[in-house]
Design a protein around this nucleic acid. Structure first.
Lengths: 181, 181
DNA sequence: TCTGCCATGTAAGTTGTTACATGATTAT
DNA sequence: ATAATCATGTAACAACTTACATGGCAGA
């Protein structure tokens, strides 16, 4: 159950509403942890019950009320306990690779198109990350700590995307030049 | 539900028992799809009910009977239908990155040790993959098709491991030299 | 004798996905 | 008018994890 710990990590510095968290998960956190809105809200309720968080209802003008969640001492203790735990590797489950495993059942052009489409997706994502890097992380050493550590995760995102693009190129080369149809 | 399709992809060429599949998932398939023994057996039952597979009980000497699963025409059709579908990106959920996000809450040495431990794991896995590459995939163009396509997935495994190692080095450098404790 | 391999499964609980539901405000 | 943004939730189902359970054979 690490979604709860990811949420704790987000709340350590500042309170967030479910809505805020959902946006974070789509933006910064999304490069290493994905969660849907429904998961987030359900998890927040559970965490409030466990007293890892307290919810504060904040009225707003012209907008519906929001519920700001603050981390409690218990929540912070739990986060630190978990941080110190040994870390397991996360499982990989990649549809595209399964399709490639059975790729000889598809017409060659169709397969190549699939890989090329995927390559484009990663190129786009890379662009987004690199833009962020250039905009938000200049003068890295002068930034506040939480921001510095966020940078390390962005770096991972950039590496992953570059790596995917490399692999796509390798595969496209093999499919086009070395594998006979 | 892609576990079933991964299993179909494994069974296209030759029948396997649940036990065989479990081993495949630990070895070759494991670099892009992980599944536990329990998941595999449960999925096989479901697939047999849907008539994607037929089970054949094979008595053995000195060993318990095994149940060999064969793909049916329906199963093959389903696989091809799925292969042609557009492919979504798989979600990433990486504990280590979450820990890094909150890394400023841990003593610096502890964090560095975590990253170094992880780096070793990836170095070991890379060694295994590269050994495989050298042993099973010489004369790539002369190998049978299914083996050629399996190679493309191994290539992905190798890339992933190298990429992790690179990232670990980048992070270790930053933590040791640029980030003040 | 104890570990590991062969071979299959059940049960309970936690996570993740998909679809549905509400309702006001702001911008085009 | 229509869509997008803000903001929160419920319900049902599918998938995954962890623990338990059996039982014979082979080798150190």
């Amino acid at each position: 159950m690490t979604l709860s710990h990811t949420i704790l990590a987000c709340l350590v510095n500042s309170p967030h509403s479910g809505y805020d968290l959902n946006k974070s998960f789509q933006e910064s956190v999304g490069c290493f942890w994905q969660a849907s809105q429904q998961q987030i809200y359900r998890e927040l309720s559970k965490m409030e019950q466990k007293n890892w968080l307290t919810g504060e209802i904040v009225p707003q003008e012209g907008k519906p009320d929001k519920k700001l969640y603050h981390i409690t001492d218990l929540g912070r203790e739990e986060l630190i306990r978990w941080l110190e735990e040994p870390t397991k590797m996360s499982p990989i489950r990649e549809d595209l690779l399964v399709k490639l495993l059975a790729g000889y059942l598809l017409p060659r052009e169709e397969l190549i198109e699939k890989i090329e489409r995927r390559k484009k997706v990663h190129q786009q994502q890379l662009k987004i990350y690199e833009q962020k890097q250039a905009e938000e992380f200049v003068n890295l050493t002068q930034l506040p700590k939480p921001k510095q550590f966020l940078y390390l995760t962005l770096l991972r995102g950039i590496n992953i995307e570059k790596d995917w693009i490399d692999w796509c190129n390798q595969v496209l080369n093999l499919l086009k030049n070395d594998f006979n149809s």
